[in-house]
């Protein structure tokens, strides 16, 4: 699915005394199947861009289109992996999380396997898992949903080396039609998740480059 920002900007709490700009009007096109890294310092607008693409907030100016319509009309085609992963897992155990969805359970199990879990994970309580494990469980749910767009907010934070390898491999194994936008502080560590790097600063896109292979860390 293609993502297109047309002069899209966002002001939080617009028309209130607490109004704060998150993103200045931005024109941007991400083609279907692209793997993109969005980077920048704290407060640069990365998360605002992610929430706009996820369709959870409407731009206060311009428009954000995902596929054929506004992002907010495509909520269920867009997977959003939060940094605070626990907030998006409503099941109390991994099995309960699997049971909640009316979809082929095999697909969920395959997604879990691609992230290094076996069936022994199913009875585990979510709140007894590490942050990294919770993130992989949440990601498995998104992979199984076969979303057209996947937005990952700092997906590697809290993962060990093996966990990073598993996550990168799982994302890499997604169909080429899936667009993946990864929000990250560390472009080098996330290099395997995308070659196009969009840099933000103070709510503006300041660079939009494609990394060459020899830019990647050795």
């Amino acid at each position: 699915m293609e993502i297109e920002f047309s002069a899209a900007g966002h002001v939080y709490d617009v028309k209130t005394p607490w109004a704060a700009r998150g993103l200045h009007p931005t024109d941007l096109r991400i083609h279907g199947g692209d793997r993109v890294l969005v980077t920048g310092p704290n407060g640069s607008g990365k998360s605002t861009m992610a929430w706009l693409v996820s369709g959870q907030i409407d731009p206060s100016e311009g428009s954000v289109r995902v596929g054929d319509g506004p992002a907010s009309a495509s909520l269920r085609s867009i997977g959003f992996l939060l940094q605070q992963t626990r907030l998006q897992i409503l099941g109390t155990t991994v099995a309960a999380e699997a049971d909640r969805f009316e979809m082929d359970p095999r697909r969920y199990e395959l997604a879990l396997q691609s992230l290094g879990f076996d069936e022994t994970i199913l009875p585990r309580k979510i709140d007894e898992m590490s942050l990294g494990q919770q993130r992989k469980v949440a990601l498995a749910g998104l992979l199984a949903r076969e979303c057209g767009v996947l937005v990952l907010d700092e997906p590697l934070a809290g993962l060990d080396k093996r966990g990073i390898q598993q996550l990168v491999a799982a994302v890499g194994a997604l169909p080429r039609s899936t667009t993946v936008m990864t929000i990250t502080h560390d472009v080098d560590a996330s290099a395997a998740l995308g070659s196009r790097v969009i840099s933000l600063s103070e709510g503006r896109v300041v660079a939009d480059d494609v990394r060459k292979d020899d830019d990647s860390p050795t």
């Binding site: 269920r76 939060l82 907030l87 998006q88 969805f101 009316e102 949903r145």
Partner: peptide, 17 residues
Amino acid sequence: EVATVIAMARTEPKTAD
């Protein structure tokens, strides 16, 4: 956080719940 939980629940596909 509660607002985020509700927002994320809205993105989920139809569930058996």
